[in-house]
Design a binder for these strands. Structure first.
Lengths: 272, 272
DNA sequence: AAGTGGTCTAGACCACCTG
DNA sequence: AGGTGGTCTAGACCACTTT
């Protein structure tokens, strides 16, 4: 019935029981979270340091259960908008503390850059179908001799060459021609656009390196310059590997950021 | 009453209502999670690829509500033990996929290394009380002229110098003498040991650098060697800065790992 | 059609913080 | 002492997957 009260399109539905329910909508808690952001935070109705209404008041205001309000508040907390304390309430944090897009989010370099307000383009693009070597196949956890598409390119920012990226996608994951057709600068974006692949996360190793002659010439930067090296395996929900990506990125053009949280998994289970 | 059924120590309590409840125990969902790990996963009762019992069966088995079972399963999922699919159930993943300790967890370098099965020690330790310069004070978001403790030292692994670390802690956060007394290799561990500080997270910037003359001599490594640079502000739940830490770390001794997750905050709110 | 996880509700007691 | 968030229950309906 609370859903009935909220539904804008269900005004002329008839039955008293059961109430009409939505289909394929976003999570209620996501909608509540966005409404809270709009109504209390972004417009300054509650200044930084001030308190949001209590959970009970938010329940009444939006006509949802407390667990839904709490999910919304949890999301605001994880996004860095508020801090929550037992017995005290939810305090709005200074806007400057709001979390920027971090490395811990699985998104393409293009998306990563655009979130930081920067535009990148792709040059020196090479796409080819190959038969994987033993080493490459082992890294991708597929049989030796499996065919795959390799994509190599230079990323530029503001005309400056800032990174060299190499991606492998086995053909058993995605048909080579499809990958080639849909590629628009980012392999990951192609994979993410296929919901049936269920791309879920990637495991990424970070390292510092200095440029060798080949990379230096590709990037137009002196041999010996420092670069950040990211070696990454992208996986499905089932843990199947769909992509091996290597990136050599010149520092100082982007901010590589991580929010390190205390004991996320082992001692704190998110209740709601 | 389900709690009553679970309590081992409450056998001789009298009242029918209300049931005796535990105090200061761990989260129920954490206990359930650990029991599931023990009973189904670690002993191989359910092989990788196999299914855990359904949520309803787990509720019955452990005499807890579904939301508690779901919190336990969510934790197992985030730890990489299982994958969960609507209509299908919870599938145990291969052990090799289990998540290692990542950079996204706030823990000291000592803890980080020991989790990876490595021991580090501290040499060339310098601790001093200073009056912060304008730049330093600005970074720590305190008034210029504030006093602070600076801790500088070299980290060694297996006799090899692997990192140079500099920490600042304003005296208004922790009394200098207390920090000096309790310091045992890690500034962060001292801060984490004070629950009243409510240390919660840190924002960490990553960069690649090459060693300058001073750092090279401290680390006994050639000038121009690549190092990973971490610049980190540790904060309380309220967003107050308690520590500024800079670390220059030689690669190849440790694995700097991040699990990048898809859209953690914006579209997926953890329900339970 | 049956079963599973996904979402959501109403209500309860507890621990903590603030008057 | 009262109010707040923290934890937990029982039960409901929905969407997805498998039979």
């Amino acid at each position: 019935m609370s859903d009935f009260a909220r539904s804008k399109e269900g005004a002329d539905s008839a039955a008293v029981l059961p109430p009409p329910r939505r289909r394929n909508r976003r999570l209620l808690s996501d909608e509540i979270r966005d409404e809270i952001v709009q109504e209390f935070i972004l417009n300054g109705a509650v200044a930084p340091g001030g308190r949001l209404p209590t959970e009970a008041e938010l329940c009444a205001r939006y006509q949802v259960s407390r667990i839904t309000v709490r999910a919304a508040l949890r999301s605001l907390q994880q996004s860095g908008f508020i801090t929550v304390r037992q017995g005290r309430g939810s305090t709005v944090l200074p806007r400057a503390e709001t979390i920027p897009s971090g490395l811990d989010q699985l998104c393409s370099f293009e998306t990563f850059a655009s979130v930081q307000g920067q535009e990148v383009d792709t040059v020196d693009l090479e796409i080819e179908e190959v038969v994987l070597s033993e080493k490459e196949a082992a890294r991708l956890a597929v049989a030796a001799g499996t065919r795959a598409v390799v994509v190599r390119r230079v990323k530029r920012y503001d005309g400056q060459r800032v990174g060299w990226i190499v991606d492998y996608v086995p053909e058993e994951v995605l048909a080579p021609q499809q990958l080639i057709d849909e590629f628009d600068g980012s392999v990951l974006d192609v994979l993410l656009a296929h919901p049936e692949l269920e791309v879920d996360y990637s495991d990424c190793d970070l390292d510092a390196m200095t440029l060798n002659a080949e990379l230096a010439s590709r990037l137009g930067t002196p041999v010996g310059s420092p670069v950040l090296y990211l070696d990454e395996l992208t996986r499905t929900r089932q843990g199947r590997i769909v992509n091996w990506s290597q990136a050599w990125l010149l520092p100082r053009y982007f901010r590589f950021f991580i929010r390190r949280r205390r004991q996320f998994d082992l001692n704190t289970v998110n209740y709601s």
